[in-house]
């Protein structure tokens, strides 16, 4: 690994955790704990994003117990898709960020649902499980309820993550962008 990657990844992971703190302070029903992962992919390529995702989940597991570690697969998927979005200029404009956010949200939600069901028998983060519970009482089967609640949560969360990452990237000064060739592609500059 290059010193640039070794310096970027811990900062991007710390950003994931710090934004989690801000979201909590604002009382938002979201996670947004993949902003650093998406930015790392968009700035330095999917390898940086994948490393950020893996380290993020590892460090969160150290703090909170390794129970949620299987969701590392979702972080990796988001990092790879964010790298793909960057290659295709997915952060050039608000509509493009929105489109990629919806796509990534749908795929990440599907993977989250599968992990929630097969590893955790439907119970994951408190808020998502509360929705799952509500849906089962509305008549959905448990697998259906898990799928709908995971998809709904991730669609909203990842769309906002991509919109936020796109807005931040477009606001970066030219000199900062010049250090990250991937960011130029992500913004088609």
């Amino acid at each position: 690994m290059s010193p640039r990657l070794l310096a970027l990844v811990p900062s991007a992971v710390a950003l994931n955790l710090a934004i989690g703190f801000v979201v909590n302070q604002l009382g938002l029903p979201l996670y947004l704990d993949t902003v650093g992962t998406v930015l790392a992919s968009a700035l330095a390529g999917p390898v940086a994003g994948v490393l950020t995702g893996i380290v993020s989940q590892t460090v969160r597991s150290l703090y909170e117990g390794f129970i949620w570690f299987p969701f590392v697969a979702v972080q990796v998927l988001i990092a790879i898709l964010a790298g793909l979005a960057a290659m295709r200029g997915g952060f050039r404009s608000l509509p493009r960020s929105l489109g990629w956010g919806l796509l990534v949200g749908a795929l990440a939600g599907a993977l989250s649902a599968a992990i929630s069901w097969f590893v955790f028998t439907g119970v994951t983060a408190t808020g998502v499980t509360a929705v799952t519970l509500l849906l089962t009482h509305l008549g959905l089967t448990k697998p259906q309820a898990v799928t709908v609640s995971s998809l709904g949560t991730d669609l909203l969360d990842k769309t906002i993550v991509f919109l936020l990452a796109g807005a931040v990237l477009r606001a970066l000064p030219e000199r900062a962008l010049g250090r990250y060739p991937w960011a130029r592609r992500a913004l088609c500059r």
């Binding site: 900062s11 950003l15 710090a18 934004i19 938002l28 700035l43 936020l164 606001a171 970066l172 900062a176």
Partner: peptide, 19 residues
């Protein structure tokens, strides 16, 4: 949600400078 951008942008700039 709108208030997230003015909070996130300085954090990201700080992240890049530190990195």
């Amino acid at each position: 949600v709108r208030s997230l951008l003015p909070l996130t942008a300085p954090l990201v700039l700080g992240m890049l400078t530190e990195a």
